[in-house]
Design a protein around this nucleic acid. Structure first.
Length: 569
RNA sequence: GCGCCCGUAGCUCAGUCGGAUAGAGCAACAGCCUUCUAAGCUGUGGGUCGGGGGUUCGAUUCCCUCCGGGCGUGCCA
């Protein structure tokens, strides 16, 4: 963004308002230190906050209180010394030092007008930050077993992962989205056997179903699909095992394709679909075992090969090769993560379900064992989703075939509401998703509140066109923004880039929904108080420009969430 | 037993790295449309931030402990 520029080395960097304020405070601190008032070297970090009350300014720092002990001076004294060195620039209008020692900073009207100009100029790209050195990030999420359709838990992971990826990109990084397909192991065999049974049933045979088999109705669909398209190939196979193996391969193709389709409908598109089977077939799994052995990370015990994960923070050492020589899931997963790092990513993020949190220590241990830095690997646990129907909890289980699929959810409440609901809550909080309520109250949903603000603005522009009122953003006057509603909007527009950066750095997509809610609220208030299509042309242009800015930010913000910004409702 | 997440208004949840008088939506109540979309706005009521201790200028936030809810603690994936 263009709001301000700071020279750093020879490169010119775009910096958001908050970072700029932080720099101003740091410079002021250095200035005060230069006068011998305090030693800047020992200073605690400068935190910039948003005061709760308007009278405390637009940005504030509690620095003086925090530094009081170090500097052996009263917070107020420190605050005053720093405030004296904060130059009243085109950005800062006023600096107050209050009560214990808060330093409160007020943005200038001129700066806020500049921000609006930036929004209008940058349009779709407003809000994006740039980094001096963009990180290459791989974010792996959903990665549901290819043994059936995606359920609600996967839907939450999909919404969170995709939004986080959007945010990291907007924060200046390069991001790939990846889905790990677990197309290997016992479950694959079991799926094949389950399909084979249904296949036989269709042919009129009576067969006994595998005890732990997959009972979902979709298994019959797959059987029917195979019977229709691959009947001759199946019949040509001599043994049941081979038939089941063939079924498994086809069933996984069928399921993965279905998952891909459902996710695309949910606005989630993966860069890479990575096959676990491929890791085994390429020898990467065996190679990882050899590597671990060469590094002395393994020992043998009762015919099994065990990873010394306790040396790297795990509770317990973990078996990586069974006594029959078959590798465990974990060995493949280590190979997988090594592969990701080898592909050149600076940061590998995994989003897992709550049932995998016990797995973090051993995986992190493996990464550590291979010497990858702690900041190269991060696991986020997306807490569980309880599907509630009419106030009653609905249990989900793929095995039992009683589950509500993601695609059913989308049929019920639509993509926009689903994505928004999954994102609006912190990733750490359990989510009660009342399907009936989400559908019934859809017109009172927060997502509609946001979309309505956008549609209302679009409506104004349509009306202007209808009345043949031109819109000349250059012919505007900052004086028309001198009211509480307009000022509040301008300040919120200025905050958008830093909200993105903060949400991305904290890996907390839900912050964006909070921000957009405040923006929409600010707009609805403005709309109620002020007539945009005023008779006076300069006033009209000023207000239309403001509306246009809000529209752009709403659209960009909703875009990050994967939610549409309708022009009419 | 051990580990992770959660406990904030009637309900669902925000609350930034420890900051100023703890917020929003829904629900309840009272107002606001002859003019750009009322899916909106304004106002009112509603809280021992699960209990107790500690750390400090300051704790919903950090630490300890107890209580309650969920999940995990595989040679399944």
């Amino acid at each position: 963004m263009r709001t301000s520029r700071v020279r750093k080395g020879r490169q010119e960097l775009n910096v958001n308002t908050k970072d700029t304020i932080a720099q101003i405070v740091k410079d002021a601190l250095a200035g005060a230190a230069g006068e011998g008032i305090m030693a800047a070297a020992e200073a605690p970090p400068v935190k910039i906050e948003y005061p709760k009350e308007e009278r405390f300014g637009d940005y504030a720092t509690p620095f003086a209180m925090e530094a009081a002990r170090v500097f052996r001076k009263s917070p107020f004294e420190i605050g005053t010394a720093i405030a004296k060195h904060i130059e009243k620039s085109s950005l800062v209008e006023r600096v107050d030092v209050v009560k214990p020692g808060f330093i409160n900073i007020f943005l200038s009207a001129r700066y806020l007008c500049d921000v609006l100009q930036t929004v209008l100029a940058e349009k779709d790209s407003y809000g994006r930050n740039s980094r001096q050195a963009p990180r290459r990030i791989n974010i792996e999420f959903v990665s549901a077993n290819p043994t059936g359709p995606l359920n609600i838990v996967s839907a939450r992971a999909a919404a969170i992962g995709d939004t986080l990826a959007n945010l990291l990109e907007a924060a200046g990084d390069r991001v790939d989205r990846e889905f790990y397909v677990n197309d290997f192991g016992n479950q694959v065999l079991l799926l094949g056997q389950s399909v084979l049974c249904r296949y036989r049933e269709i042919s009129g045979e009576t067969v006994s179903f595998p005890v732990d088999g997959y009972h979902g109705a979709y298994v019959r669909d797959i059987a029917a699909h195979i019977r229709e398209n691959f009947n001759a190939q199946v019949e040509a196979l001599p043994s049941d095992d081979e038939k089941a193996g063939f079924m498994a391969v086809k069933a996984i193709e069928y399921n993965v394709s279905g998952q891909r389709h459902d996710l695309a409908r949910f606005n989630v598109n993966f860069t890479t679909w990575f096959s676990e089977r491929g890791l085994h077939e390429s020898g990467a799994v065996a190679h990882t075992r050899d590597e671990m052995k060469a590094r002395g990370l393994l020992y043998e015990e009762a015919g099994k090969t065990v990873f010394r994960s306790t040396d790297f923070g795990d509770d317990k050492d973990r078996v990586v090769v069974r006594d029959d020589g078959r590798p465990t899931y974990m060995l493949a997963d280590i190979a997988y993560h090594r592969d990701k790092i080898a592909r050149g990513y600076d940061l590998v993020i995994d989003i897992w379900g709550p049932d995998h949190h016990g797995y973090i220590a051993r995986m992190a241990g493996a990464m550590k064992a291979f010497g990858y830095g702690e900041d190269a690997f991060r696991v986020l646990i997306a807490q569980q989703v309880n599907l509630v129907m009419e106030g009653e909890l609905v249990k989900m289980s793929k095995r039992l075939g009683k589950f509500s699929t993601m695609s059913e959810l989308l049929d019920e409440i639509g993509v926009d509401v689903a994505r928004y609901f999954f994102i609006m809550r912190s990733i750490d909080s359990h989510l009660d998703f009342d399907l009936a309520l989400a559908k019934k109250q859809s017109s009172e949903n927060p997502v509609f509140y946001l979309q309505y603000a956008h549609a209302r603005i679009c409506s104004i522009f349509r009306e202007a066109q209808k009345r043949d009122l031109g819109y000349e953003p250059s012919e505007r006057d900052g004086a028309h923004y001198d009211n509480p509603e307009a000022l509040a909007l301008l300040k919120l527009l200025a905050r958008f880039p830093e909200e993105i950066a903060d949400a991305a750095n904290a890996c907390e997509p839900h912050r964006v929904t909070n921000y957009l809610l405040r923006l929409a609220q600010g707009y609805h208030r403005f709309y109620t108080e002020h007539r945009v299509l005023a008779d006076d042309a300069v006033q009209r242009n000023s207000y239309m420009a403001l509306c246009d800015g809000v529209r752009i930010v709403l659209k960009n913000g909703l875009g990050l969430l994967g939610v549409s910004a309708p022009e009419r409702m």
